[in-house]
């Protein structure tokens, strides 16, 4: 369970408050206008920015002051999810040993994770020798191996084509189910939300609102979301 207890994020004139709870196994999309603070909220949960006030609790533990690597959060960023000078299997192996002193067993586990995301036999390749979609899969394999309680996605598939993105989102949903993680996903596209998230947190006007069912929210959006979505609300 993730609890944001009176959380305040400030940077210059920007401010965002969040006071909400997210259940285990939840799959949640963060939706809202650009600059509303979706990514910042995710960064605060991941430990990359320090909140001005409030607490972040994961399964009852206060992690507000915990270093990013020590939090039960795995984050996939927009870019830079892989080290280009390390092979795929090494990138995945970092989930087990941040110092990369991998045992035979660690290496096998990393290979197995690559296998699971459909990259069997590609462990020796460096990211430059992989396509964009394959690179995303390597990062997902690492997340799978990390087995953290929260999986935070900051639009990691924004650069992929629609079909590839849909496939990756399905894979993400599977990974989240397998690890039992809470899935938090920033997106600009209501279709992404419909595809894998059961609930939506609306981030707008300086606040992140409590999660609401995706279908209901998108079918009858509040004015701020309606303005943001425009015609994208009812595709096809």
């Amino acid at each position: 369970m993730l609890k944001l207890d009176g959380l305040e994020i400030r940077a210059g004139t920007f401010s965002l408050s969040a006071d909400l709870e997210i259940e285990r196994h939840a799959r949640i999309a963060l939706l809202g206008p650009s600059g509303a603070g979706k990514s910042r909220l995710l960064s605060a949960i991941g430990g990359f920015i320090t909140p001005a006030a409030g607490r972040i609790l994961i399964d009852g533990h206060d992690v507000t002051g915990t270093a990013p690597g020590d939090r039960p959060v795995a984050t996939l960023f927009q870019d830079g999810n892989l080290f280009p000078h390390l092979s795929a299997v090494e990138n995945v192996g970092l989930a087990l040993r941040p110092d990369l002193r991998l045992s035979r067993g660690d290496r096998n586990a990393a290979e197995a994770a690559l296998d699971r995301v459909g990259l069997a036999g590609m462990g020796a390749r460096k990211p430059a020798a992989l396509s964009g979609g394959q690179q995303s899969r390597v990062a997902l394999a690492r997340v799978l191996l990390q087995g953290r309680a929260i999986l935070a996605l900051d639009e990691p598939f924004a650069a992929l084509g629609p079909a590839l993105k849909a496939g990756m989102l399905d894979l993400v949903a599977e990974v989240a189910d397998e690890t039992g993680a809470i899935l938090l996903m920033v997106t600009h596209d209501p279709e992404d939300a419909r595809r894998i998230s059961r609930q939506v947190i609306l981030v707008a006007d300086g606040a992140a609102l409590a999660p609401r069912p995706t279908q209901a929210l998108l079918d009858d959006p509040p004015p701020v979301l309606r303005a943001y979505l425009g015609d994208a609300r009812r595709p096809g």
Binding site: F48, A67, P68, G69, V73, A74, L94, L100
Partner: peptide, 20 residues
């Protein structure tokens, strides 16, 4: 480019120097 990724994987100090 890699600070946040390193942090999220728990790489710090000497490990980040050596590996990144």
């Amino acid at each position: 480019g890699y600070g946040r990724l390193g942090l999220s994987l728990g790489m710090q100090g000497a490990g980040f120097w050596r590996l990144v």
